[in-house]
Nucleic acid binder design. Structure first.
Lengths: 148, 148
DNA sequence: TGACCCATGTCAGCATCCTGACATACGTTG
DNA sequence: CAACGTATGTCAGGATGCTGACATGGGTCA
């Protein structure tokens, strides 16, 4: 049922999607026991590295829309993982910050996600990892520039 | 509004998602004028390279569920891009095949998508491309094996 | 200062996709 | 042969995410 080894395997675009899909599936698998989704985790991780990020900035960083990130932030705020001021200090952007509870929750998730990334890179040398990083960055840059 | 250059950029997982997201956005941009979605195109491309693929096999190849691929196949069949036998020759799987119309439609889409992939790889040498291919394949393999 | 443009937060409406479940068909194993 | 496990196509049901739109705040430039 389904012979393997086709020409599609030569397309870098397909390989990119395949790797990204496999990574997301593996992350969801280890995050589910913690009651966390990938977007959920991404939001917390972004806030840990860049405290004070606004809703829109978090949305862009987690690759979802502002609306989706907004409902997520509301639930995170309701459950005490993040805090946002009632009024915007400047403009309309509400800077979000992790609470101690949010930081603890993130620590668990980070450990789980880290193990997945370690597994993903298990067959690669340090030089290969930085080479992969460099090549992926090059692809992103090429795709973004010259956007009609 | 949003300083750049953070630590998240060092995570290969994040870079993977970033590249995949940028590629998908670029593909949707060039496919929209043709009235085609990325999944739509992926289905046609899979059928061109592997005639006779079943609904479930197409779903796995395009990274969607059987149900989603099924409704897509129904619309493609209704519009005359693919054909499926009324009854399964063996088992329950209905092998799908491209019609001449489907092949023509795919040809347009392939040209558009190819241009995107060319742009993505514009800053890379041939050796770097095959290296990227090898590394991505390694990541997929590591993520798939040892699935608890 | 006032006109313009862009970014943000938020609301409603809708499309999309998935989860869960069922009946069927085939291969395998006792 | 019969029971089991696996894979398929298909049917609702519901959750999730996006598109479109609006009002607001801030920066820019004449």
């Amino acid at each position: 049922m389904g012979q393997d080894g086709v020409d599609l395997g030569t397309s870098l675009g397909y390989l990119l999607k395949e790797a990204s899909s496999a990574l997301r599936a593996a992350m969801e698998e280890v995050l589910r026991p913690l009651g966390m989704s990938v977007t959920h985790y991404a939001c917390l991780e972004l806030l840990a590295q860049r405290p004070g990020l606004s809703n829109s900035e978090l949305a862009r960083g987690a690759f979802v829309t502002r609306q989706t990130m907004n409902v997520l932030l509301q639930s995170l705020e309701r459950d005490g993982y993040v805090t946002r001021p009632a009024e915007a200090p400047v403009g309309k952007a509400l800077p979000a910050r992790l609470t101690p509870l949010g930081r603890r929750s993130l620590a668990e998730a980070t450990a789980a996600v880290r193990s997945v990334e370690v597994r993903m890179l298990s067959g690669m040398t340090g030089a290969e990892r930085s080479e992969a990083s460099r090549l992926l960055r090059s692809m992103v840059r090429s795709l973004r520039e010259r956007r009609s």
